[in-house]
Design a protein around this nucleic acid. Structure first.
Lengths: 224, 224
DNA sequence: ACAATGCATATTGTATACAACATACAGAGG
DNA sequence: CCTCTGTATGTTGTATACAATATGCATTGT
């Protein structure tokens, strides 16, 4: 029998996951604003499903830190104060450093090659002025490093932390004056990884994240 | 009007939270074993509630990493391989070090005093042979440090990581031969915090966590 | 004997119904 | 005018009903 027709049964996703992804996207893109109420019936009718998958999705968002619910009052999009952001950035700094250090010894030649290409793509994206494209290219760059750690739990933690600052990072990337610095920092990280110099890698990554942290904090303070 | 009768309305907890806590406890205590199926109807009748709160609790456990669900198959208690545990311990090591470093500069005199008392309580608990009591006393010790960071997100992350290794840590604490080392390590951490020596604190904490990590890994290997 | 098929059953996925509670507002009473 | 209370309404909390799918087993055909 020909086994070329194993059409992927991954097509199915429970509605709760569809709803979860949809709401998460909406929150990160800013379509759902911090403090905005997440009313089950309203969301259900808007998304054309019943309350059940909505509720389950909300429970998941809650655990991701993207929503907050008060019993018998309902859920709302999580607000991020400057303090919250500082707390997240403090953790992210440390874990990104860990990821860099671990990746340094575990990254494969093939992954290094891919990182080099993606670094170029990032630089190209800076020309486009398309902020979301730039953000995605940056995400890709760091994802290679994350995956090189071979630690899936670390990867998902870092992705979660990144999510939480996404809204503000987008603002930061609108400022073209920071691009040269970004390029240099990526360069430094790549080179350090290529030479497998743990000291350099962690330092470069720390520098990179710290700069971003400062920028993000400034943006929040401006908004307040 | 007398305002002394503000009896706390916190008495109410949604069933989903009750179920969540119950299941989490059961998983951590080992009453629900890794790989064991979490069937909604069965749990519902056992806990005397309907499927709805059970399902929501499962979604929460899922995000905590304590349960894994396959669509249309159902949820089961997460299995922990040696690799999974190593991944968790790698993260925990780094974050505990971060917590120690941050706490070092932010811990109050009052908290230091409390830490000192709790350290004594821990030492007392070692005499009792009651493993769960010892584990709790150890948790208390570290909790003071966590809270001293003033970073709630870090606290909840560390609690979550601790949860994931709880089952194995219990085994580790059954071995009385490690007690003297534990006492010394706690002592070193406390002293370093009292002298506000960041270098010493992080080193002591790293040492402490690393020892525990090694022990936990040994236990898992024995079990396999 | 064995593979394929169909059927019964168990279980999850989703929708809906009902209950409990919160909120806002109007009206009664002071 | 103010306060309190009752009521109407909206929303969440929980239970249940129904649909779709997975699983195990018996049966059938070869």
């Amino acid at each position: 029998m020909t086994d070329n027709l194993v059409l992927n049964m991954d097509a199915y996703l429970p509605l709760r996951d569809v709803v979860f992804n949809t709401l998460r996207e909406a929150i990160l893109k800013g379509d759902l604003k911090p403090g905005e109420r997440l009313m089950e019936l309203q969301l259900a009718s808007k998304l054309g499903v019943s309350r059940t998958p909505i509720r389950e999705a909300i429970r998941m968002l809650e655990q991701e830190g993207l929503a907050v619910t008060v019993p018998r009052k309902g859920a709302e999009v999580a607000k991020m104060t400057l303090k919250d952001m500082e707390d997240v950035l403090e953790i992210r700094d440390t874990l990104d450093e860990l990821a860099a250090r671990v990746a340094c010894s575990r990254i494969s030649e093939e992954q290094l090659e891919r990182l080099k290409q993606i670094k170029k793509q990032f630089e190209d994206s800076l020309q486009t002025q398309d902020v979301k494209k730039i953000a995605q290219a940056d995400v890709n760059f760091h994802d290679v490093i994350y995956e090189a750690t071979g630690n899936p739990k670390l990867v998902s933690l870092l992705n979660n932390l990144r999510e939480q600052i996404y809204r503000y990072r987008i603002e930061y990337l609108k400022d073209a004056s920071s691009y040269p610095t970004l390029i240099k920092e990526h360069e430094a990280i790549l080179e350090a990884l290529q030479s497998r110099d743990e000291e350099k890698v962690t330092h470069a990554m720390h520098e990179h994240v710290r700069n971003q942290a400062t920028a993000v904090k400034n943006i929040i303070q401006q908004q307040e």
